[in-house]
Design a protein around this nucleic acid. Structure first.
Length: 491
RNA sequence: GGCCCCAUGGUCAAGCGGCUAAGACGGCGCCCUCUCAAGGCGCAAUCACGAGUUCGAUUCUCGUUGGGGUCACCA
């Protein structure tokens, strides 16, 4: 059997990383077996329509590297792939069920349903009371003729229990009296999500339904539908949820569904913060799934490797906490793996902002690669290049480097003429400073420390003395060192 | 509240009756070093609790506790 999975997001304009991980697992489930990955847009909720939201979905999948084989934008043999364009196919199915005595028209008003809920005994939650389940056909006819608004509900069994098998969670059994007579067709004529989902999955030939574990307890409702139509029930793969962790003012740690208060949860929010799509996908692949065999203990995976390594048996049952620190680390790993071109194209916008000389691109890559975990950190790392801040002279004091204000003054004074004569490249600068230190019979650091401080005006710089001087250029470096010298002299 | 699911370090997690209970992130320490990183080496830190099954339970069963999910004319 050729596996077919689908990603069925609703166009809300926002792609939660949890949804994206579901999409990833759907993609991997299909691709690992050489199957098809289908994109379907679930837009049956007309009130929630958001302009341009579908584009966000396409953009996300593209950036994330999840290439769908069928979808609204590329077509396929099972279209249309947008539910609102399929509107007309759902109702006949529902009416068929009514004809078969497996569903019924319900004329209950929203108000009646609300009061039903409000009048429920305290602390309990009640479902629909099946008021219209046994209306006589005359009553139904009359109501329809009178133009009363109606929905179509499915008759659910009221006793016994339902069991199904999930590939991750095993056998799940739910008492049937927990199952409501669910609405299939809404008063606006649109199908409910549940109903459309089943019709679409079946008519699109979906073999494996991969979704979040929040559907675990409502799956029997879906199955009841498959059974009512006499269709095969798909293979279910429910995924553990992704949580976030937060600490309140009193120091209490709480874990709950990943949401904004834990940090960014939108795919594009993360991308805008500097997280690379590949790193995000790699990270969420490992959230709730663990590779085994030859891939055991591997952390960095390309999409191709994920496809090869993916195994449903490795999916865990318990929810996991989204760890931004680990994502940050992984992002840094991806940066380290970049080749020259890729690194530069990512860094270039920030370089341009600082008027970085192309002569220093290679050196900057070398300096920055181990020091950044996101490209957005570049401005902060190179802030010293922008201007010389009015730094504290105590910076010249450094015990380990054996630097004091006195030695610093002397170092700068003697370094200036040397630097003025020096070629402005790494080797020459390094050599010149070493020679100077040798001549003065001091440690290299006695010269390097104050020169770097004078040039940068901050204690922490990416790279050392020579690198800082090169980044600033000869003229600017000497200007700054002279300023440092004057300040040390007390002017 | 009913129902369903889950339970190994701070986090991701391996384990699928017998192990000094992997690995990674984070933390800490050391080395390297003109700063900060990176890198190398090392350390600390986990089987929620209680019964039962068994020669032997992290692993199997039951219960307790804790956590999560779900009970819409939302998807």
């Amino acid at each position: 059997m050729r596996i077919r999975t689908r990603f069925a997001p609703s166009p809300t304009g926002f792609m939660h990383v949890g949804n994206l991980r579901t999409a990833l697992y759907e993609y991997l489930t299909a691709k690992h077996e050489g199957g098809s990955f289908v994109l379907r847009i679930e837009d049956t909720d007309q009130e929630r329509y958001v302009e341009g939201a579908t584009q966000v979905i396409y953009d996300t999948l593209k950036l994330a590297g999840l290439t769908h084989d069928e979808g609204p934008d590329i077509g396929g043999d099972y279209g249309p792939y947008v539910q609102s364009e399929r509107k007309d196919i759902y109702k006949p199915y529902a009416e068929q069920l009514v004809k078969d005595g497996k569903a019924y028209y319900c004329f209950c008003s929203k108000e009646r349903l609300d009061s039903l809920r409000q009048n429920a005994p305290e602390g309990t939650v009640v479902g629909y009371d099946r008021h219209c389940r046994n209306l006589s056909s005359e009553e139904v006819e009359a109501n329809l003729k009178a133009g009363l608004p109606y929905v179509i509900r499915q008759k659910m069994p009221t006793e016994g229990e339902s069991t199904y098998t999930d590939l991750v969670y095993g056998d799940i059994t739910i008492p049937n009296d927990e199952l409501d007579d669910q609405i299939l067709i809404k008063a606006d004529g649109f199908p409910t999500y549940n109903f459309a989902n089943v019709i679409d999955d079946h008519t699109m030939g979906i073999t494996h339904v991969v979704r979040g574990s929040e559907y675990l307890s409502s799956t029997p409702k879906y199955n009841a539908l498959y059974e009512a139509f006499g269709w095969d029930i798909p293979t279910y793969i429910h995924l553990p949820l992704i949580n976030g962790k937060s600490v309140d003012e009193e120091g209490n740690v709480t874990v709950s569904k990943l949401s904004k208060r834990h940090g960014s949860t939108g795919f594009f929010d993360l991308v805008n913060e500097g997280f690379l799509p590949k790193a995000i996908m790699n990270y969420i692949a490992l959230l709730g799934w663990c590779p085994s065999g030859e891939y055991e203990n591997q952390e960095i995976f390309s999409m191709e490797e994920l496809i090869k390594a993916f195994d449903i048996n490795g999916i865990s049952k318990s929810p996991s906490v989204f760890d931004y620190d680990k994502l940050e680390w992984m992002n840094g790993e991806y940066i380290k793996l970049m080749d020259k071109d890729e690194f530069l194209s990512n860094a270039k916008p920030y370089y341009d902002e600082l008027n970085v000389s192309p002569d220093t691109y290679d050196m900057l890559e070398e300096l920055l690669k181990p020091r950044i975990t996101r490209f957005t950190q570049i401005p902060e790392k190179l802030a010293f290049m922008k201007s010389l801040e009015n730094y504290d002279l105590d910076l010249y004091e450094h015990k380990k480097s054996k630097s004091t204000k006195e030695t610093a003054l002397d170092a700068l004074e003697s370094a200036i003429p040397v630097l003025e004569e020096c070629d402005w490249n790494r080797d020459a600068l390094g050599e010149a400073i070493k020679n100077l230190a040798e001549k003065k019979e001091v440690k290299n650091s006695v010269i390097m420390w104050p020169v770097r401080i004078a040039a940068a005006g901050v204690a922490v710089t990416p790279g050392g003395c020579s690198e800082v001087l090169i980044l600033l250029g000869k003229e600017e470096s000497l200007r700054r060192i002279n300023i440092g010298l004057n300040r040390l002299k007390g002017n």
